[in-house]
Write a protein that binds this DNA or RNA. Sequence first.
DNA 1: CACCTTTTCATACTTTCGGGTGAAGGATTT
DNA 2: AAATCCTTCACCCGAAAGTATGAAAAGGTG
Lengths: 166, 166
Amino acid sequence: MELTKNTKSINSSTDQNKKEFYKYVIFMGLLLALGIAALKSLEYYYFAYRISADVYIGIISVIFLGLGIYLGVRFGKRKKTTLQPDAPAETATVLPIALPEGIELSSREREVLNHIAMGHSNQEIADMLFVSLNTIKSHTNNIYSKLNVKRRTQAIETARKLKIIQ
Amino acid sequence: MELTKNTKSINSSTDQNKKEFYKYVIFMGLLLALGIAALKSLEYYYFAYRISADVYIGIISVIFLGLGIYLGVRFGKRKKTTLQPDAPAETATVLPIALPEGIELSSREREVLNHIAMGHSNQEIADMLFVSLNTIKSHTNNIYSKLNVKRRTQAIETARKLKIIQ
DNA sequence: CACCTTTTCATACTTTCGGGTGAAGGATTT
DNA sequence: AAATCCTTCACCCGAAAGTATGAAAAGGTG
């Protein structure tokens, strides 16, 4: 089960990377065109107003330096997110994950689930809702059954993926 | 004891940032000097061998573009190692939400935190990272101390608010 | 090298969580 | 009225999580 999850997330993330790559190729092409246009207009000024050659070269240098830095930062970040094992895997899983049938939490269960996601203990939830600890335990166990999980942290994750909370 | 540890790590990390910053300033200066030298030598060839002006400008553009990309990547990476693992996290943390002093989780702690957020039990995390359960317990307790929480669910909530995860 | 942080691990103890089972009162639907 | 679901509560037991304390090895820094 764990394995299937992993492969799924890997595949989807690869697809996303491809898309991002194409995006960047197009983006770079546009930027390059823009740069050449800027260069040409600069050239116009060069001949029209006779800027010093040094200044001209300096401007070009600065422009391309800035462009390069920008691209570098962009690509650096992209590489970074691609290489990261944790966060991207998770976000990638969010999209293609299957929702387990017509699960419906009751209103009370949703309420308890929200408290769980806020980091409250069962005792705290019981106190806040003016019911007994056992009641909250019942609710939590029902929630776990419906979400098909075994722990409250998993319940938070699953509920988040299913957009039940947040 | 825990507190002292935190403040110490904060100070040292700030110092490290400063040092790294100075390193990069020097590094950039050197690169700039190198770039100018290259430019001048190119200029020499320009006059000596009468390269076409377009080619000359093109070479300059490419050089500075490469330089810029390199610098951009370097800076992007630098930010990554200094602050957080996730690109959006780091940028987002600065802007919107209050960060409780200079909290810095170690890389291993961030790793464990991600596993916690994914709903894994301590035992599962221990198995996945090939360390003992006690080690994970140590990490989790350190995380709780640094995030000033008492439970793993609270840690998830806080980390999410602080954009340390997701 | 000394110092500090990080990462690792251990032991022992307490608290919280989760699983199983059962049940009672209320609301809604059939 | 019977069936069903929701909400409430109880008890017990095992598993997981959390607390406290200590310590040792590895890596980086002055």
